[in-house]
């Protein structure tokens, strides 16, 4: 049977779930919110782990939701090739659950930061970036307190070698500089790939840069078209 619906998982404390559904529907992509305790629908066409503050960020951001039963299902569909995207708290959940490498922890500023940033597309041959060119600069909003990407130095080298860095924070000209790094992320990493290129997490919010009326640009559309 044809898969038709993107499952946007809602945990207690998710707050970008409706935004994600609305952004996807704006692109003509069928999507529905799925309460985590209900599990994934059969054969979803994709999975979005949305932003928010699941479980109040207890212990560490994403730590609790990462250990909920629905994440075992997400790992299964991800391994089978279904596109899976974690955004912001969804990125924290994804990394905490081992879906993607590294960790997202306290911003260098020790503050919650709500800003518009630029990101450079590090590889354009993934479902999430095929709308872009290699090296293209996209404008996306961030809103997080724990978005600093950390990973062991040797593991970081592996990620670079394996071409698993998806986005890096950069300036408007595409230069990856410390000044353009909003949160102190290692290597300015804003988003990384999982074991497969159909699994990705990022701290910026594509769903907040999809509806033209929001005046945050529409670069997020390119990412969400992974689910079309």
């Amino acid at each position: 049977m044809a898969a038709v619906t993107v499952a946007v998982i809602r945990f207690g404390g998710s707050n970008c779930d409706r935004d994600a559904v609305r952004a996807l529907e704006h692109l003509g992509i069928d999507a529905e919110i799925v309460w985590h305790e209900d599990g994934l629908p059969a054969d979803p066409s994709g999975v979005v782990i949305p932003g928010g503050f699941s479980y109040g960020d207890y212990l560490r951001a994403g730590a609790m939701a990462a250990r909920s039963p629905v994440m075992a299902e997400v790992h299964e569909v991800a391994a089978a090739g279904t596109p899976v995207l974690g955004v912001c708290n969804g990125a924290q959940i994804g990394s905490e659950s081992g879906l993607t490498p590294g960790a997202f922890t306290t911003n260098r500023s020790a503050r919650f930061q709500c800003e518009h940033v630029h990101c450079r597309v590090e590889r354009a041959d993934t479902p999430f970036t095929r709308a872009f060119d290699d090296g293209e600069v996209v404008a996306l909003p961030i809103a997080h307190g724990e978005g600093r990407f950390e990973v062991e130095d040797d593991r970081y080298g592996d990620l670079v070698d394996e071409d698993r860095i998806l986005f890096r924070y950069c300036d408007a000209d595409g230069e990856v500089t410390d000044a353009a790094n909003p949160n102190g992320s290692k290597g300015n990493v804003a988003g990384v790939l999982g074991e497969r290129e159909s699994v990705a997490v990022l701290m910026p919010h594509p769903e907040r840069a999809t509806l033209p009326d929001l005046h945050a640009g529409t670069d997020g559309q390119g990412l969400l078209r992974a689910f079309a």
Binding site: L59, R60, A63, R67, S95, E96, P101, G102, A103, T105, E150, V151, E152, R155
Partner: peptide
């Protein structure tokens, strides 16, 4: 190992 610490950091 499984929850209280994140071995990455």
């Amino acid at each position: 190992e499984r929850l209280l610490a994140n071995p990455t950091i």
